[in-house]
């Protein structure tokens, strides 16, 4: 019995020292804490992190280039009268799908960075979108939609 517990202890020790564990990125995590009172809804692409950062009581969509740890401009995306709810970034960082609320309407949008254009994506049949996910190419979108008290997931192919 003593032998078993000794072996188990040794095993745990070896596992603990093997270094095979997720390593925090302090330089990035410090940056992500700076200048926002809270941050939520992370979406990682290859070298991009999109998230919702709160400043001065207002949440904004931010896209950070992880190579140089700098936010990139997103002209036309963050409207003063809109509250973002959920987001997802494509693999190359070129497209961001956003669910946002404005004037009591919650709608799904696609933002294309190269055109700085925010395009509404209609839901058919109509419903209230919530959580959204883009694939790597940014041409397939999955969105959680509330219809008559039930949550469905719609798949939408985008041009």
């Amino acid at each position: 019995m003593k032998m078993v517990s000794l072996s188990l202890g040794l095993l745990i020790l070896i596992a603990g020292c093997s270094g095979e564990r997720p390593r925090p990125r302090p330089e990035l995590n410090g940056l992500l804490r700076q200048s926002v009172s809270s941050r939520r809804d992370p979406s990682l692409a290859q070298v991009w992190l999109a998230s919702l950062g709160k400043r001065g009581g207002r949440e904004r969509i931010e896209l950070i280039d992880l190579r140089n740890r700098r936010p990139v401009p997103l002209p036309g995306l963050n409207r003063a009268d809109a509250q973002p709810i959920s987001l997802s970034v494509s693999g190359d960082g070129a497209r961001i799908a956003v669910v946002q609320q404005r004037d009591d309407r919650t709608e799904l949008f696609l933002y294309r960075r190269n055109a700085a254009a925010l395009q509404r994506i209609p839901l058919d049949p109509p419903g209230v979108p919530r959580s959204v996910s883009l694939d790597g190419s940014g041409r397939l979108l999955a969105v959680e939609v509330s219809r008559n008290g039930r949550w469905d997931v719609d798949l939408i192919r985008l041009p």
């Binding site: 270094g19 095979e20 564990r21 997720p22 390593r23 925090p24 990125r25 990035l28 995590n29 992500l32 804490r33 009172s37 809270s38 941050r39 939520r40 992370p42 992190l49 998230s51 992880l66």
Partner: peptide, 12 residues
């Protein structure tokens, strides 16, 4: 408060 933290998984 909500925070976002990044982890490197390349060893895992």
């Amino acid at each position: 408060l909500w925070r976002v933290e990044i982890f490197d998984l390349s060893d895992v």
